[in-house]
């Protein structure tokens, strides 16, 4: 039984904001299915009552003094923006139709 279907791959691509073609969807379905099948070997292990490790070092809530600092200069920040106007980053119509 396959672990991930063509429709699921398209759904995931949409969640990840990646446009994919039919051909790509087919290729990725095959490859992701193989990888997920491989990953399911983890089910051989009993992990009940095992705490997950999200972070390897024993540190929590690293805090610092809240001292206001100057932000980056606007012209520097805009330097890498693909499109900008009047000191602001420009994007296409936000209310446009979504597929």
């Amino acid at each position: 039984m396959s672990r991930i279907s063509n429709d699921q791959v398209k759904h995931v691509a949409n969640l990840a904001r990646l446009a994919i073609t039919e051909e790509e969807a087919e290729k990725f379905t095959k490859q992701l299915d193989a990888i997920i099948t491989f990953a399911e070997q983890l089910n051989e292990l009993d992990t009940e009552n095992v705490e997950p490790t999200y972070h390897v070092l024993d540190m929590k809530n690293v805090l610092r003094e809240d001292i206001p600092q100057k932000g980056l200069p606007r012209e520097e920040v805009l330097k890498n923006a693909p499109e900008h106007q009047d000191g602001q980053i420009k994007v296409p119509n936000i209310m446009g139709k979504e597929d």
Partner: peptide, 18 residues
């Protein structure tokens, strides 16, 4: 949006991302 490559032909913001 803020840096890097941007597709030349996007109809909407979502389309731009994708």
């Amino acid at each position: 949006v803020r840096y890097g490559y941007r597709t030349p032909d996007a109809e909407s913001l979502i389309d731009l991302y994708k």
